[in-house]
Design a protein around this nucleic acid. Structure first.
Length: 648
RNA sequence: GCCGACGUAGCUCAGGGGUAGAGCGUUUCCUUGGUAAGGAAGAGGCCACGGGUUCAAAUCCCGUCGUUGGCUCCA
């Protein structure tokens, strides 16, 4: 007999060789039906793995992340089997579970899979699933494993196996299908009731573009048809919040083939929104002692040779602009920092004058690969809400923390509560990727970690994700489909001050190097607006709405009264327009709803007589009739509840 | 850049080898109304662009451009 500890601490005595399923049965039949995966002594095991020693067990169902992972992993085996059945010459490579599903990378040779083939793959998978084949793990020797895949001429699996240690290699069998596999399956294929092939894409073997390109088939699967339906409905809902769709509907921005791909054009409403965001940040920055500067969109090539950017990124960037005179070369600016360094360099500084905080909404141009462009989140020309802080090494910690305060204020005012903070450090194995002295890197990394801790940020550390010139703290937010985007960023830089020979006179009457902080709370106006659109579905916080209310007249008889109301609203700094068209009230309301206008102010005979307005909120809530003053109070209270005053 | 898909009216989309359709929007007229579409008439398209196949191409094939889902990259 062995003792098995359950997560609640209770201990069950079971026969030696009992399986997780047996443990579940000893608790309840219902649980036994639902468990699809298990963890025993911290490692994921099969539900059929015999337990031979004392240990602690956790049982997983579909409702656990581990259960879903096992389910999806097992589904990818079924996908692989279906692909082999339909494309017998295909070579399998790897097929992991991922968020929301799984994929399998296969080498199809000259064959292609397109979305027309999805249905037959799904049908084949379901047919296999219905066979209720058990997943059975089997240990093999390295030689056996290699022999199998060498015989199949599958160089990918051979490469994988060669990197494994003999004695640790296992195959998983189900039906007549075998795959190299570490384990972690559901009991049998029959549990998979619903599958959907989502898309097909090219993917390089081992993520290396110099290696062969494979076909990656993405799928998702569920234990109930109903769950698949719900998931697909969720994706449809997310599509409605896609910033590209909303941007078009709300007339915020557009693109033109003639202007060029990845170069957004801001329409009047979008420009108004952007201006409000800029003013909001400018006001907070002013309180923190930032000064606005302005720099040109191009700079001499030499500027970027000095900064080191040319060497690092020149070949993959927009190429130099030539002039009528020989020997002159300019670059579109891909970042603002070199310009700001030269602003700092325009005169000598004393330590008493630092920190200097130069801010600029600086438009930059980066040649992103065409396949990477995506709406407003990934573009080739964009405006950073950039600033560079030049401070003494002693001031670094405090300055860094002040920037965190600013970022948190910005995120808080815009309703981004579920962000993640990511501290990006050097990859210690790859020191050549970075420039600058080791001791400076150590100082900078410590400054960031200390500040993140001091501010109580819930952060993750990513090694190897640092910029080439310094470590950084990024604020990541997810879009409607759950893809993570970097918005705010704060970076410490000891490198540029060195390269631009920045200095200040210290209290010791000697010259010293300042430290530089790069920071952008929004990241870029483009990306920020995009993610804000997806978060809010276009229902921006009231303070940010370019138009906060629309006055809807019941007929043109009330035009004059509407003008009076509009004037009163302007006195209260409420942004409104009047809809005087000869349309019915129902139609005007419908259009205002589609435009997501927060308030509809309806006026007709009754309101004119009483000197009131009838207030309808976006979404349909009727607030009844009231004076303009009373309405203004509602607006003020609502704005105050979302946008806090920035306390520095 | 690479792999797949897509590109038809301002917008959303249907159609599909015999030279073009709907709804919404727009214009004009009628309607002067009470909380998500009042009525009528009209205008609007080199079916992304360039080649090819064909008696005939928006439709089939190739290329280009753009969009898009991924990969790779990301200052």
């Amino acid at each position: 007999m062995i003792n098995i500890t359950l997560p609640d601490g209770s201990v069950k005595e079971m026969e030696r060789g009992s399986t997780p399923i047996d443990v579940a049965k000893s608790i309840s039949e219902g649980l036994a039906r639902n468990i699809i995966s298990a963890k025993y002594n911290e490692s994921i095991v099969e539900t059929s793995t015999p337990l031979t020693e004392d240990g602690s067990i956790t049982l997983f169902t579909w409702n656990d992340d581990e259960g879903k992972a096992a389910f999806r992993h097992s589904s990818s085996h079924v996908l692989a089997q279906a692909i082999i059945r339909l494309y017998p010459s295909a070579k399998l490579t790897i097929g992991p579970a991922i968020e929301n599903g799984f994929y399998y990378d296969v080498d199809l040779g000259d064959q292609i899979i397109s979305d027309k083939d999805f249905k037959k793959i799904e049908d084949t998978m379901l047919e296999i699933a219905r066979g209720k084949h058990d997943f059975k793990m089997r240990a093999v020797t390295k030689k056996e494993a290699l022999d199998k895949y060498k015989a199949e001429e599958n160089e990918f699996k051979v490469e994988l196996i060669e990197n494994l240690e003999d004695g640790t290699i296992t195959f998983c069998d189900h039906d007549n299908f075998t795959d190299l596999c570490r384990g972690g399956h559901i009991p049998n294929t029959g549990i998979i009731k619903a599958v959907k092939i989502m898309s097909v894409a090219g993917a390089y073997w081992r993520g290396d573009e110099n290696k062969p390109q494979l076909t990656r088939v993405y799928g998702t699967s569920f234990p109930k048809q109903k769950d698949l339906k719900a998931y697909l409905a969720l994706l449809e809902e997310a599509k409605k919040r896609d910033h590209r769709k909303l941007g078009k509907e709300l007339e915020l921005f557009t693109f033109s083939k003639r202007v060029g791909q990845g170069l957004p054009l801001w329409l009047p409403k979008g420009a108004a929104l952007r201006e409000r965001l800029e003013n909001f940040l400018k006001a907070a920055q002013k309180k923190q002692g930032y000064e606005m500067v302005v720099s040109p969109h191009i700079g001499q090539k030499e500027l970027y040779e000095t900064s080191g950017h040319y060497e690092k990124y020149g070949a993959d960037s927009f190429q130099p602009i030539l002039t009528p005179n020989d020997g002159e070369e300019f670059l579109l600016k891909p970042m603002n920092c070199p310009h700001h360094c030269e602003i700092y360099n325009s005169r000598p500084w004393s330590y008493r004058e630092l920190p200097k905080r130069y801010a600029e909404f600086g438009t930059v141009y980066r040649y992103e690969q065409s396949g990477e462009l995506h709406g407003l989140t990934r573009v080739r020309g964009f405006t950073q809400d950039d600033a560079h802080i030049f401070c003494t090494p002693d001031q670094l910690d405090e300055e860094f923390m002040k920037v965190i305060d600013l970022v948190l204020y910005v995120f808080g005012s815009l309703g981004f509560e579920d962000f993640t903070a990511q501290v990006s450090l050097r990859d210690p194995k790859n020191p050549d990727k970075y420039i600058g002295a080791n001791e400076n890197w150590v100082k900078a990394e410590n400054a960031i970690l200390n500040a993140a801790k001091a501010k109580g940020l819930n952060y993750v550390v990513e090694t190897g994700e640092a910029a080439f010139y310094g470590p950084k703290l990024d604020f990541m937010v997810k879009d409607a489909l759950g893809r993570s985007w970097q918005l705010g960023t704060i970076q410490v830089d000891y490198n540029l001050p060195e390269r631009f020979e920045l200095q200040y006179k210290g209290s010791d009457n000697e010259m010293h190097r300042p430290v530089m902080i790069h920071r952008a709370p929004f990241g870029s106006m483009e990306r920020f607006v995009a993610i804000l659109l997806e978060h809010t579905g276009g229902n921006f916080p009231l303070w940010l709405m370019p138009q906060q209310a629309t006055i809807l007249t019941l007929s043109d008889k009330y035009e004059k009264y509407a003008q009076n109301v509009l004037n009163l609203l302007e006195n209260h700094e409420i942004r409104a327009l009047t809809d005087n068209r000869g349309e019915t009230m129902g139609k005007k309301i419908r259009e205002a709803e589609i435009q997501k206008l927060p308030f509809m102010l309806i006026i007709g005979e009754q309101e004119e007589k009483d000197g009131t307005i009838s207030v309808r909120r976006h979404g349909g809530e009727d607030l009844g009739s009231m004076t303009v003053d009373a309405f203004a109070k509602i607006v003020t209270v609502e704005i105050a509840s979302t946008m806090k005053t920035f306390e520095n």
